[in-house]
Amino acid sequence: MTGFRVIAQTVRAHWGILTLTSAGLIVAYYVAQIAVLYFRLGHLPNYVTAYDYPANVAQIIRSTPAMSDMIPIILNEWILEIGYMDYNYGHGIAQWTMGILPSKLLMIAIVSALISLNALLWRTTRHSCSHLERRSLVGAAGLGAVMAGLVNISLSWVVCCGTPAWIVGLALLGLDIGLAFTLEPFGVWIASVGFAFLAMSTLRLASHNLTVQSTARRTSLLPEIA
């Protein structure tokens, strides 16, 4: 049995808790962004706008001849906008917004599922590997989650007239502007490395789990995860 089979087995056995924790992590991810904004700028969101995502995607498909252009535009499409409108100026000006983009939501859902899976596998294997390895795996998973999470930040600010992108969120969260812009071209790489760390950690934990299960079978003990 490979690590992948252990993962599949774990998912089958614990899909309920996995779904719940993943959903909780997704909510926590977006709530955390709003919380940081609140502490940094002092305002809670005061407006929500929902977008007709299917109709907008259909419009993009109709109006974009090249597939290579169509995909990135669709990936940038919003389904929900939550923000703070400052009514001290004009009839109100959006000071900051957090967009829910299905493409980013999917990425965050994958990250959340991997974190939940890691936690489940870690619970089983925590006594089967060394303290150092355990800490390394937790560290790798954590670092991976942070990297993938950062690149999927979906905050925007009226300040960045030129380039609304994930680095806007970083700048908004307090990162130096120059550093944020330096990081921008590496977004895909940062996310990829993040996902790789998470996946590696999951697989490693699954392998350990395999060892636990083999040992359990040899000693006729029931496996904790089956």
Partner: peptide, 28 residues
């Protein structure tokens, strides 16, 4: 819109045909 950047994004998405904006955002 509060700035030119989102207008460009909406034009890319085919939701806007015409955009009115300042010199820097119009270049972008």
């Amino acid at each position: 819109y509060a700035s030119g950047g989102p207008i460009t994004n909406q034009m890319l998405a085919g939701k806007l045909d015409i955009g009115v904006m300042g010199d820097y955002p119009v270049i972008v």
